[in-house]
Write a protein that binds this DNA or RNA. Structure first.
Length: 262
DNA sequence: TGAGTATGTTCAG
DNA sequence: TGAACCTACTCAT
């Protein structure tokens, strides 16, 4: 479900509610019980996000690594824990309930650092270095549409942002990375940063300009979103009216406009 | 109500 | 490359 903007948004919610608090940690589902016992009554010192990975730091070499994967989500605002809640963190009159994550692990500081080093730069961070992504991209013969979603190249972009960013920058998605110019990459990086930051404010993806807002919305897990091309392969391009195309690429469905992105 | 699909990653073959 | 993970939503029946 989530791309990098959602993870940054969830980190913000943690910072507003539970960071600095002595918390109760539990695992109603049981699969995180031993780890929860080790964290119970500790203070949640800080929370960091890198790409689609979320890290809860408890000090004393104890951190929780969370990856929501395809199904996972974190519910706040006092929603009651259910028997499928992998981890529940409670304090300060609120609670976070973690449901169906791909990963929920107790990690050392070293494990956290190793994971962050394995990921590409995250455009949402002011101090991330786009050159690390550019060096990898310009060496690769893989299509740009595979590279921008490769978390070891750029961390945080998923299938929705991939389609929308390549459309908005008029990038032909099958262009090999090594044929991309530095100016084209800079445009992709800058737009990624702007869109991820904007989306992280409320956890929603916003890409379509006001003057292009018409027609049907795309439903993303119960929420309505407008998109330029994502999931619009039965419809016409908002700009040129060509039929939006779809094809599998890098294991996911890619959407693009063959006229605007040529 | 059941089939199909999905903002993702890892691992086996 | 495909299966597994195993939830929530959409759509057809």
């Amino acid at each position: 479900m989530p791309e990098g903007h959602s993870i940054r948004h969830l980190a913000n919610v943690f910072e507003e509610t539970l960071v600095g608090e002595k918390v109760k940690v539990a695992s109603p589902q049981g699969r995180f019980q031993a780890e929860a016992d080790a964290l119970n009554d500790k203070t949640l010192e800080s929370v960091t996000a890198h790409g689609k990975h979320l890290f809860l730091h408890f000090g004393d070499d104890k951190n929780v690594h969370i990856h929501l994967g395809l199904y996972g989500w974190l519910y706040f605002d006092g929603d009651p824990a259910t028997e499928s809640t992998r981890m529940r963190i409670e304090g300060n009159g609120t609670a976070a309930n973690l449901i169906a994550p791909t990963a929920c692990q107790l990690w050392t500081d070293e494990q956290v650092e190793d994971k962050k080093l394995s990921l590409g730069p995250d455009p949402i961070h002011a101090d991330s270095d786009p050159d690390r992504a550019w060096v990898k991209l310009k060496k690769s013969s893989k299509p740009i549409a595979a590279l921008v979603m490769d978390q070891s190249v750029i961390a945080g972009i998923g299938n929705v942002y991939r389609a929308e960013i390549l459309f908005m920058t008029k990038t032909m998605p099958f262009t090999p990375g090594k044929e991309t110019t530095e100016a084209e990459f800079s445009e992709i990086w800058d737009l990624s940063r702007a869109l991820l930051r904007d989306g992280s404010r409320d956890g929603k993806i916003r890409t379509v300009a006001k003057n292009h807002l018409y027609g049907d919305e795309v439903r993303l897990h119960g929420c309505a979103h407008f998109s330029y091309v994502y999931k619009r392969s039965e419809e016409s391009c908002r700009i040129c009216r060509s039929r939006v195309q779809q094809a599998p690429l890098a294991g996911r469905t890619l959407y693009w406009c063959p006229s605007c992105q040529s």
